[in-house]
Nucleic acid binder design. Structure first.
Lengths: 158, 158
DNA sequence: TTGATTCCCATGTTTTCCCATGCTATACCA
DNA sequence: TGGTATAGCATGGGAAAACATGGGAATCAA
């Protein structure tokens, strides 16, 4: 990893969840965490049956945006912070690189014995294998439908 | 991450209130208090039947901000802060990590034998279990309705 | 004294830590 | 080029530490 600090969660990796609920965090993800001296934070996705994760640093920035006193009593903010921070939890990994996902999260994502990590740039998701296969197919179909309207990036196209 | 560490109250944790009125402060919360060398301050929430808590440090900052923003429209905020400071109290935890909530606070939140700690980033709340279950469901529904207009977390896109 | 608060110890459970094993990919050597 | 050594990684299991919680003794106030 370079000094430029581009940190992206990428790739799709399936790891086993053992009897204790432990899962190896993909080593690439671990490298990001170490480099940023932060921690991984996970919470239930608002829109899909999956676990969502990001760096604590990202959530901290959100908290900073919200903490200034002018908004101290705002109701919308109140509801949002309850939902996000009330659900999120820090997950430190042990010396072998594993985190222990909570019952609540595993249940929400319908994960039992295998967890699929899906990179999303600044965030990542953790899926049940079957659900992810279905979701990926759906997304691909969706994108294909919209294809004519997608602008090529950097002038490349095919 | 920058020099400053990140301190966020997160997760939702249910702890028992014993016969003496003692409750374990979640260990993550305790870690924040120790790290910042501050104290926990609690007061009755102005908007919900729950106890609200934060670091004394945060209230201190709020006080400073209020001093410096005495604009024409600040009267309401002024009154609100009066309410909070009039109600707030410091709660130190003992060697096993427990605090003793006052009758006034417990009554306001309708807490008897179980207290649910809900993280809110820089703040947290303490709820009666049933009330929190109801409130969480309400908020989820509310936020889902507003979802299209919500900015993504931390300004990142996904 | 009575009631309340603080401090300390005991216990069961959960979580974290550490060591061992086997697999896989990359590098190395003939 | 093919085979082997090496390092990193995923995974399993047991030991140790941390945590929530209950109860008793000591301290303080009215």
């Amino acid at each position: 990893m370079t000094a430029g600090k581009t940190f992206l969660f990428m790739d799709t990796i399936a790891n086993k969840v053992d009897a204790k609920g432990r899962v190896s965090l993909p080593s690439d993800y671990r490298a990001i965490v170490k480099e940023l001296s932060t921690d991984i934070v996970c919470y239930r996705s608002l829109s899909s049956p999956c676990i969502e994760g990001c760096t604590e640093e990202l959530l901290d920035r959100l908290a900073s945006d919200m903490e200034n006193s002018l908004d101290f009593f705002s109701q919308t903010q109140d509801e949002l912070t309850n939902l996000i921070f009330g659900d999120a939890r820090r997950f430190a990994f042990d010396s072998t690189g594993r985190i222990m996902l909570s019952e609540k999260l595993l249940k929400h994502a319908e994960i039992t014995d295998t967890a699929v990590f899906v990179g999303k740039g600044r965030k990542f998701q953790i899926w049940n294998p079957e659900n992810w296969a279905r979701e990926e197919a759906r997304i691909r179909a969706e994108v294909f439908k919209k294809r004519p309207s997608l602008k090529p990036v950097g002038g490349q196209n095919d």
